[in-house]
């Protein structure tokens, strides 16, 4: 009887968290993968010679996976110190990801015009963007740290 009561209370605690995590994960998947893919498809008609290179599709998948994973785990572990640890972890992982994905801020791509031998090289200096993206994630990192400190000090006060 007591075990059944325990299980019920645990389930009562877990189920909302799992539901929230699943919902948040789904919304994040929509925002970080489905929406950008649809936007790119809308911007570039199928008749145009330009398309998203496969390597960037992979990078977008990885970005979406990182965001979805950290959204789910932070929600699953909400109310614990791990939630804030994952927030800090997400900021660090995203900084590394952006530095890698944007090739240190120097974007270079080569594509061939269909039906022609001509190759077009594109070079863009995205260091300004990279700096802003790193800054945003440093803000996220600081926020996570402050939340962790706040959480621990709140716990200490309760004791």
């Amino acid at each position: 009887m007591a075990d059944e009561g325990n299980l019920k209370s645990v389930l009562k605690k877990i189920i909302p968290n799992v539901t929230k995590a699943a919902l948040k994960g789904f919304v994040m998947f929509l925002l970080t993968y489905l929406l950008p893919t649809l936007v790119v498809e809308a911007m570039l008609p199928s008749s145009s010679p330009f398309g998203m290179p496969s390597e960037y599709t992979t990078l977008l998948c990885v970005f979406s996976a990182i965001v979805v994973f950290f959204s789910v785990v932070t929600e699953l572990f909400s109310g614990t110190i791990l939630q804030h640890a994952f927030c800090v972890g997400r900021a660090i992982v995203l900084i590394v990801y952006f530095v890698y994905a944007l090739n240190g801020g120097i974007f270079m791509s080569t594509f061939q015009i269909p039906g022609q031998q001509q190759v077009i090289h594109i070079f863009a200096d995205l260091r300004a963007f990279l700096a802003v993206l790193i800054l945003i994630n440093l803000l996220g990192f600081a926020k996570g740290m402050l939340q962790a400190i706040n959480f621990l000090s709140g716990k200490a006060e309760l004791k």
């Binding site: 001509q118 190759v119 077009i120 090289h121 594109i122 070079f123 863009a124 200096d125 995205l126 300004a128 963007f129």
Partner: peptide, 11 residues
Amino acid sequence: HLIPLRVSTSV
């Protein structure tokens, strides 16, 4: 006025 972009090709 912010993002330098270069496109090049050989003919």
